[in-house]
Design a protein around this nucleic acid. Structure first.
Lengths: 146, 146
DNA sequence: ACACTATTTATAAAGATTATAAAATAATAC
DNA sequence: GTATTATTTTATAATCTTTATAAATAGTGT
């Protein structure tokens, strides 16, 4: 299934006139396959084997390109570096404050919030973002055990 | 009214054994008075007049202290630097993607999301964050006029 | 006023991201 | 298929935000 996501993404890139280089292919492939919301550095390190000469700038440049085209979302949490998330269907994130793990979950109906916010603030609202923070099961277990 | 907020904040600090220095007083005062969710640098520059010798580190250190005590929230949006928000009552933010303006709004009932997320992901959820993004009235007006 | 400890300052260091210019490479026209 | 052109990659340096460090200073309790 992620096969198809990748192919769709590449098609979508072609459609906007962005060249498909081996590096771009690899970065996209990694993003689609990864469930971990990696940082730019994660991606850089992961592809070091395949592309020993690839520059960090290439990773950043292409993540920006993907973001501008709408294939990728940039997530900025409290920690120092951004995380990048391949955009599939709308979902939200639960973030472990102990180990940093990020788990997806779905929730319908938050469009309502957009409407209210728009009404109250006078904004034209395009989209929203939301996360929940807490402790994941693994970390909870460790604390119990102690 | 912000007078009272400031006094409460100072009392709350004293209660936790944190010393009240002139710099801390000034930073808190600025945060309480400001409706603009300033960056550390904004605060630093704003207090330059009163404290010509103040170090940037002081601003960062104290913002961390305030955050740890719960007086201040750190907001990380897409841009390069964090913004700091004096915690009053729970509210959310509408962010203008054109000019960066941040407007507060209230919305009840998102605790429901925490429950569902907890159920689905197995997390112990402590809190959540949410924002809406769009175009503020001023920026919309400018676009229309053009 | 004295002693003790937290805090500030000045400075340097770290880390993430962006800018720049030259070299390499993909798409396009022929 | 080759030449051309514009894009992209690489390598490197620069920038910017934030944190670490150590000496100087200032609050607080006695």
């Amino acid at each position: 299934m992620s096969e198809m996501q990748l192919r769709d993404a590449l098609d979508s890139l072609k459609g906007t006139g962005v060249r498909i280089t081996p590096q771009r292919h690899a970065i996209l492939e990694y993003l689609v396959g990864s469930m971990t919301h990696p940082t730019a550095d994660d991606i850089y390190k992961a592809l070091e084997g395949k592309f020993p000469n690839m520059s960090v700038a290439t990773v950043y440049n292409n993540l920006r390109v993907f973001r501008e085209v709408g294939l990728v979302k940039e997530l900025t949490y409290g920690d120092s570096s951004s995380r990048f998330d391949f955009v599939t269907t709308d979902h939200y994130h639960a973030i472990c404050q102990n180990c940093g793990k990020i788990v997806d979950f779905h929730y319908p109906g938050l469009d309502e919030v957009e409407h209210l916010a728009s009404h109250v603030t006078g904004f034209k609202v395009n989209n929203h973002r939301m996360e929940v923070y807490g402790t994941c099961q693994d970390c909870s277990a460790v604390k119990e055990a102690h």
